[in-house]
Write a protein that binds this DNA or RNA. Structure first.
Lengths: 340, 340
DNA sequence: ATACTTTTTGCATTCGAAGTCATTATTAAT
DNA sequence: ATTAATAATGACTTCGAATGCAAAAAGTAT
């Protein structure tokens, strides 16, 4: 097999007896070429196996048609469908995804370096801890950014996020309506903006019902951390009526720990609510009461906003907050007062 | 804020009073530049915020430093850690990931088009149904390919995969040793190479113990499909002693269906084994007996092989098969004969 | 057939860094 | 100090497609 050199527009032009410009125009949508040359060019291009070189095109058009997606490995493993959905949506808009994964803040500078050199058209960041300074840099480089699942209206960036306030209100209201009196909050790590938001909202909503000084324990969003932290806590405290977990994975960890080691009956001995709506949450064994994040809308909104910003760089930053779906499972004890 | 034009090597050169070549060399490792100019250039480059333009570099060097990772959304959702691990490994080798997600065969041609135009240095394909023709095309374009989790020694491509033969042998041997007599195989979809391999290996291994004509049902790797297909099957057949599921997600589906609707005690009424070693498999409620895929080694091997092929295009294709870890859970009835 | 539009075409230039090659500066050797 | 050897430098070209501009071709109207 002969190592064949790549076919360029010049090669096609020569072969087809036209100019390189003509070839270029044939492969550029919306440019006027006569039917005759178009056919001639397409025919020879096809015969020679010509494909326009995207890199050369990027260089001259100053548009890479690539979007950097920055995702923490934790986020990817918790919401694996986000990536494929983002990719699909972006792909429909003619953008390719250049992937960056991060473990917490580690390596952020490095990623930002890469982003400048690759001249991406835009950035979608999931669970990346961008501070003000980072966002300023993006602005200075004219790279539009959409922060996914982060509510930060003050920042000069577009954001899209789930309505945690509303979702957690629904969960808390449900627990209150079912006569739960004592609570435990299992928060995500303080390094996570989403975790902090969910925790604070939960505290506020409980306070709205006159419940204060709610104990808080911290996990890292994982099943194991939930089991460990919960086990430690119950060994030194009395069991709460209900646990409000920052996410489903930890809620499931709590349920398993309660069942396996404390021999508790969930929900009769203790209620548990989660947040996210991951698939195991709906499995028979758990049937978690939770709020399902509107993934499809979130990803679609993120992409739409980014494209809008790319095409219209001067449009002002926008924040979209989408509501999740309250899912009534069987992890909350159905203890209702008389109806009034 | 002024929309600032991008800083090029010429700008830096002018400002630093050197030639563009000098600037270029400073940013290319292993090129000889005097200490004096290097410092001068780095200083002005820094002041001006210069970053080499990766796209221009790609064009001239004919090396995109990008690797296409093609993953089906199903694969990504089942093994979300694969993507981050591949990305991390590739990133260590100075390669960036250009992501393509596919739903089954749909869109493969389109992806291949993109791959040519983007001049990627190589391709890692997970669960993509490349046929001989596809692989030929890659070879003709001199794009090295590594097929992940596919055993295809005949193909002119590198492959890395888990040792299904060994893993399934361990599972079957375990079931046989524990006196299981009747079996049901829950296969993945016939469109999946891995599913076909696992199914055929299971049949062979059972046959090795004199067990033939094992009934087979088909799911799509998902929890729900397993529940549905299993429910349908048991309504018309007698319960087997053990179900051999093509993956953990379906094994869990079977367990839940058996527990919820058939009121069975797993493993006492029926044993279930899976394959993959996903996290829910180890959760208290399931504690599945399964074979854990050696993800870290698989991803590392895939990347190493790809880099090897990129750096040394004439090296011959290689297939690596890595063994998984047998995990003894509690989903197999521990019914042992007298020890002999 | 002529003048006048409109469309199509090709030439030449551009994007930004890398690398070739000839030249100049520096160092080492005598 | 002079020559030889080496290192550093800059002018210029290259990668491959896109596009402004002017020229040519095709189409329309008179």
């Amino acid at each position: 097999m002969v190592k064949q050199k790549r076919v360029t527009s010049y090669d096609v032009a020569r072969e087809a007896g036209v100019s390189q410009s003509a070839v270029s125009r044939v492969f550029r949508p919306g440019f006027s070429v006569s039917k005759k040359t178009r056919e001639k060019v397409l025919k020879t291009a096809n015969e020679m196996g010509y494909r326009p070189n995207a890199i050369a095109r990027m260089l001259i058009t100053q548009q890479s048609s690539m979007v950097a997606v920055i995702i923490s490995s934790r986020a990817n493993e918790n919401y694996p469908e986000v990536l494929s959905q983002l990719n699909k949506n972006l792909s429909d808009k003619g953008k390719r995804v250049l992937l960056f994964t991060l473990d917490d803040t580690e390596g952020l500078d490095d990623v930002m370096e890469q982003i400048w050199t690759f001249q991406v058209d835009g950035v979608i960041a999931l669970a990346a801890h961008f501070d003000h300074n980072n966002l300023e840099q993006f602005a200075r480089h004219n790279v539009p950014v959409v922060l996914y699942n982060r509510h930060a209206p003050e920042a000069n960036a577009n954001t899209v996020s789930c309505n945690h306030d509303k979702g957690i209100k629904q969960l808390v209201d449900k627990l209150i309506a079912t006569q739960h009196k004592t609570f435990l909050i299992l928060s995500g790590p303080t390094s996570s903006d989403v975790a902090n938001e969910r925790r604070e909202v939960a505290i506020t909503k409980l306070a709205g019902h006159g419940i204060t000084d709610v104990p808080i324990i911290y996990g890292d969003y994982s099943y194991d951390s939930a089991r460990n932290e919960f086990a430690k806590w119950v060994s030194e405290n009395t069991l709460p009526d209900a646990v409000i977990s920052a996410n489903d994975a930890m809620a499931i960890g709590i349920i398993d720990e309660a069942r396996e080691n404390l021999k508790l009956d969930i929900p009769n001995d203790m209620s548990v609510v989660g947040f996210d709506g991951i698939s195991p949450a709906s499995w028979f064994t758990y049937q978690l009461t939770t709020v399902k994040q509107p993934m499809e809308q979130l990803t679609k909104a993120a992409v739409d906003m980014l494209i809008e910003r790319i095409e219209n760089p001067d449009s002002s930053p926008e924040s979209r907050v989408l509501s999740g779906t309250f899912i009534e499972g069987k992890s909350v004890k159905a203890r209702t007062r008389q109806r009034d």
